[in-house]
């Protein structure tokens, strides 16, 4: 949970479902293939209604917004792991939402792709896209430099160490649930 990250925020509101994060027509891309992982990133948030503005500049593979600010129930809908992966591949490091859909949250943790932080305050009504913030994982706060204010984050709890480890495989190995990977089987 030691992550500290500074950058611009992209702000969305409630119930952003997985079809808006990565529409179904792009699910033919297989995230475990390196080139297709990159491509998934380039389509992140392409299903959002136009009023949110563009998340990735035309022709670019990556976003200029490493931090997503959202309302309630972020990532609802499908179980597609393509959703957190598309965001992660696009350059997003953390999402700060009021709440998450269960499978999306779980997929963030299992993959170690994104930190799904939660806040009590409805930051999506206070922040606007493009504002510069610093998220300090150690102190569990997000500082909005434009507003000159900091806001508390809920502790990631038991999910934190799993994401820090790099996902469920690394975590299961570190706790002895599955054997350590031998060099030959690393594939």
């Amino acid at each position: 949970m030691g992550i500290t990250i500074r950058g611009k925020v992209f702000v969305v509101d409630d119930n952003i479902d997985t079809d808006q994060i990565i529409p179904a027509e792009y699910l033919t891309l297989v995230p475990s293939k390196v080139d297709e992982y990159e491509k998934l990133g380039s389509y992140a948030f392409i299903g959002l209604p136009d009023r949110y503005g563009s998340f990735i500049s035309s022709g670019a593979l990556k976003t200029e917004y490493p931090i997503i600010i959202a309302g309630e129930n972020f990532g609802c809908g499908s179980s597609r792991e393509h959703a957190p992966i598309a965001l992660g591949a696009s350059g997003v490091r953390v999402v700060v939402a009021q709440s998450y859909a269960r499978i999306f949250f779980r997929n963030c943790v299992a993959t170690g792709e994104l930190y799904p932080w939660e806040t009590e305050e409805r930051l999506c009504d206070l922040f606007t896209t493009g504002q510069e913030v610093t998220l300090e994982g150690d102190r569990c706060v997000i500082v909005n430099h434009s507003l000159g204010r900091e806001y508390p984050l809920r502790s990631l709890g038991e999910a934190g160490p799993v994401i820090d480890a790099g996902g469920i495989f690394a975590y299961a190995r570190s706790t002895g649930m599955i054997p350590l990977r031998s060099p030959q089987s690393a594939g």
Binding site: S79, N107, A110, M177, I178
Partner: peptide, 18 residues
């Protein structure tokens, strides 16, 4: 219940899930 690829890959190899 529904899960993502990573959890499913874990089950494929171990038959278990947390």
């Amino acid at each position: 219940t529904g899960i993502g690829n990573t959890d499913a890959g874990f089950i494929m190899g171990t038959g278990k899930l947390l």
